[in-house]
Design a protein around this nucleic acid. Structure first.
Length: 429
RNA sequence: GUGAGCGUAGCUCAAUGGUAGAGCAUUGGACUGUGGAUCCAAGGGUUGGGGGUUCAAAUCCCCUCGCUCACCCCA
């Protein structure tokens, strides 16, 4: 036996079957929501050439896993799914139908220090619309966020919405400092409060009068007020249009709001930006996204507008675990286990094949132990039904035991499929 | 990158500076037709690693590695 202690690399995880069932449940719901909105799935490679990744993330770039391959080419593990999408669109432009609506559910990597809800290897589920400058596209993205979270059972969440153009406008209005620094300070609101933001601005070299104006801008609670404050601004018109579409699509208005403090860290956003927060538990944002009209142009040569969101599945799963939101019965590893004795093995295997052809998930115990152990096996794996293939098989009968209710009865083999399908707790899709 | 807490059997955890233990898990048996069992037995540890203080260190001190949490930032 190896004595060395092995473990997973920091921030990376194994998933047990019981965990995978829950994860897949979430992924399946998301897939259904994406497809309900007409989005098509694509995949892209884990590794991108360094020139694809570099210069897209600002400060975050230092968190990209970067290395050289055997021939000395600079490459990196993808940091998100948005930049690879931009490269993908530029590369396959002639083969795509625009506006192009795609979703992606894949791993990304960040050389970050792990903590609660943060990993070095994790999945993101992204939905983006490429090739439409219309606020209809942004509205559809936000609707997807709402639909996905609602279908997963979230009762309360808030989609915060702002526009990068308004941060630029505010920066122009105060006429000092740099925009990035301004955005950073504003983004701290929910952690340090208005006074904290003011201190942050002063320590970043903004004048007291500038800080006052920023605080005033951040105290705006509605688009109407924002309109008065900013005057004629494209960013305001965009949000007004966006909100009118959200209303038309029936999103309850207490699930989203204009939030002048939302800034978002990534460099590539150019228009409306949005992220979703939950109050319990404290975990940071569970979705994040926005419009990025210039990014694809940096690959394609010509500008191609785009907007989209990333759903933070890992955090969504963490929240669902902590709040006990997973349904009691996520589909079992098998609908039925066929238990057998030494002289009925062949019969059990034959019956298993027949049932599988009818779409039943059948497990057959493949160890050398007796009935006692086989029942324990089913019980521990969470298989709710055991078909005991014993000598009654000669009469065309098997004993069917329901482990949840303790009930047992002899059932003719030809009725078995119907019997299994009749049980309320199975979902046969 | 900054800070705090914690590392004892495969897992969860005990042990005032004084003989390293329990439960679960594993393996064998009671036990080839009725389930998470019960009983018996067995295996399993340089107490993360290294150094120091001490008659004596899992326990105190230093270094190091690892994990967790928070900050930064983010999904």
């Amino acid at each position: 036996m190896a004595k060395k202690e092995y473990r997973t690399y920091r921030g990376m995880r194994d998933f047990l079957p019981s965990q995978m069932r829950r994860r897949d449940y979430v992924f399946n719901v998301l897939r259904e929501v994406f497809e309900a909105h007409g989005f098509e799935k694509i995949e892209t490679p884990a590794i991108e050439l360094w020139e694809v990744l570099s210069g897209k993330y600002g400060e975050e770039e230092k968190l990209i896993y970067r290395f050289t391959d055997r021939k000395g080419r600079e490459v990196g593990l993808r940091y998100d799914l948005t930049v690879p999408l931009a490269r993908f669109v530029a590369q396959h432009r002639s083969e795509l139908v625009f506006p192009f609506k795609r979703y992606q559910m894949e791993r990304v990597w960040r050389a970050d220090r792990p903590q609660k809800g943060r990993f070095r290897e994790f999945y993101q589920c992204d939905a983006d619309i490429v090739g439409s400058p219309s606020m209809m596209a942004d509205a559809q993205i936000i609707t997807i966020i709402y639909d996905a979270l609602t279908r997963l059972g979230f009762k309360r969440f808030l989609i915060r919405i702002n526009n990068r153009k308004l941060i630029s406008a505010l920066h122009r209005k105060i006429g000092e400092g740099d925009e990035f620094s301004l955005a950073r300070a504003m983004d701290k609101l929910d952690r340090v409060g208005l006074d904290g933001v003011k201190d942050e601005l002063l320590s970043r070299g903004f004048s007291p009068s500038a800080a006052e104006r920023v605080i005033a801008a951040m105290s705006l609670t509605s688009l109407k007020e924002a309109n008065k404050f900013f005057g004629e601004e494209e960013g305001i018109y965009e949000l007004e249009e966006l909100f009118s579409y959200l209303k038309a699509m029936g999103i309850p208005d207490d699930f989203y709001s204009y939030d002048p403090s939302l800034a978002r860290g990534l460099d590539y956003y150019t228009g409306p930006i949005f992220e979703t927060v939950v109050e319990e538990p404290r975990i940071g944002s569970i979705t994040g996204g926005g419009r990025y009209d210039k990014l694809i142009g940096s690959f394609a040569g010509t500008e191609i507008p785009a907007t989209g969101t990333s759903l933070g599945v890992e955090r969504i799963i963490t929240v669902m675990e902590e709040l006990g939101m997973f349904p009691e019965k996520i589909s079992p590893p098998a609908h039925i286990l066929l238990a057998h004795f030494r002289d009925t093995r062949a019969e059990a295997l034959k019956l298993a094949s027949q049932l599988r052809q009818k779409g039943i998930k059948v497990d057959v115990y493949c160890g050398e132990k007796g009935l006692r152990a086989q029942l324990g096996y089913a019980s521990q794996k969470g298989i709710p039904l055991v078909g005991i293939v014993g000598e009654e098989i000669k009469k065309g009968m098997i004993s069917l035991k329901n482990l949840l209710t303790q009930e047992q009865s002899e059932v003719p083999v030809e009725n078995l499929e119907k019997f299994i399908r009749g049980l309320y707790y199975f979902d046969f899709g």
